[in-house]
């Protein structure tokens, strides 16, 4: 699952950021968008997604939305892959 096919207004955990440009991956990191962090999809717009990361809204295009892989927090508990404890 990634941002382009997840549910609206639901909290997810990021499992992977597969951006083709490493610069973009680093940039997303500085925004707090990296494996283990939370993200919520706010709106689906034409070829564009509005997401909430660390209390900020960003619009990202579909290529980038597909690059950010997600998992439901419940699933993360089961698989025990997250470093961060989800409260």
């Amino acid at each position: 699952m990634n941002i382009s096919n997840c549910k609206l207004n639901t909290e997810y955990l990021i499992t992977d950021v597969n951006a083709k440009e490493t610069d973009m991956k680093d940039f997303l990191f500085t925004l707090g968008c990296y494996p283990g962090e939370r993200v919520v999809l706010i709106s689906r717009l034409p070829s564009m997604y509005v997401v909430d990361i660390k209390n900020s809204r960003y619009s990202i295009d579909d290529d980038l939305a597909r690059a950010i892989c997600l998992i439901e927090p419940m699933e993360a508990d089961k698989e025990d892959i997250m470093e961060r404890v989800v409260v």
Binding site: E21, S56, R57, S59, D61, D63, L64
Partner: peptide
């Protein structure tokens, strides 16, 4: 080449 788009709103 295309590039990603991201912008803080």
């Amino acid at each position: 080449s295309k590039s990603y788009f991201i912008m803080e709103l």
